[in-house]
């Protein structure tokens, strides 16, 4: 029942998102609307089946289904969208919803880091890359290569195997999170036990970003006089 619940929720979310990004043509606007109506109708018809399930759900679990469904919908948007910029926006949605998942499993510091670094920095970087490569003007008609059916088989097969394995490990059944690690604990660990890896990580970051600047820097333009080009 939970699975059905999640599928309907995900369908409704996808339909709503499709509506938001709908173009002017009739079928792209009407089709998601129909799916939305259908999902709502099925939900209403089956709602008496859900009453036991709903009353047994805890509030964090309901929020987890919503956040997780949105994250999955965003992930599908990233890999199935027909527009580069829409894919980037879907990616931002997934990253922010992942922050929600972190908060729900009581790792709220990681949630904040996720919002700051992914929701802020990485997504801006990606959108800038889209802009600087003129992705929208030169957008190919096909965003997928001819190999996409094989990719679908690989991805689907991997997902099926992973989910089957998750279901088979008995030690993970019935575990719930009980610990609450504060930001204090993480800070102490970072600057005490893991001080050296932390410094090395900062070194990696600065080397990578300086390297990025060197690679992306514009070459000397031939229009400039020789003296000016040397000064730069």
């Amino acid at each position: 029942m939970e699975v059905l619940f999640g599928v309907f929720a995900a369908l409704a979310f996808i339909a709503a998102l499709r509506l938001v990004f709908a173009t002017n043509s009739v079928q792209t606007t009407l089709a998601p609307l129909l799916v939305l109506l259908l999902a709502g109708l099925v939900f209403v018809v089956l709602s008496h089946e859900f009453t036991d399930t709903i009353s047994s759900l805890h509030a964090p679990q309901v929020v987890f289904y919503m956040v997780g469904g949105l994250a999955l919908a965003g992930g599908m948007g990233v890999v199935f969208a027909n527009d580069l910029v829409h894919a980037a926006l879907f990616l931002i949605m997934t990253l922010l919803m992942t922050a929600g998942v972190f908060v729900l499993v009581s790792a709220e510091f990681l949630g904040l880091v996720q919002i700051l670094l992914y929701g802020g920095a990485v997504s801006i970087l990606i959108i800038f890359a889209l802009m600087l490569t003129r992705a929208r003007e030169t957008q190919a008609l096909r965003l997928n290569g001819p190999q996409w059916p094989f990719a679908l088989v690989t991805g689907g097969g991997l997902g099926a195997v992973l989910i089957l394995m998750v279901g088979r490990v008995d030690a993970w059944k019935g575990l719930t999170d009980t610990t609450y690690k504060t930001i204090n604990d993480i800070g102490n660990a970072l600057f005490d036990t893991y001080a050296l890896p932390f410094e090395i990580a900062s070194l990696v970051l600065i080397v990578a970003l300086v390297g990025a600047i060197v690679i992306a820097r514009a070459e000397e333009t031939p229009e400039l006089p020789a003296g000016q080009a040397e000064q730069r």
Partner: peptide, 23 residues
């Protein structure tokens, strides 16, 4: 697991390099 397999599909199927980075 679902998010990871979606990412695998995206990396293998997409043509645009920025989309691959997103996956």
């Amino acid at each position: 697991a679902l998010l990871f397999s979606l990412g695998v599909y995206g990396v293998l199927a997409r043509r645009n390099a920025v989309l691959i980075i997103m996956s």
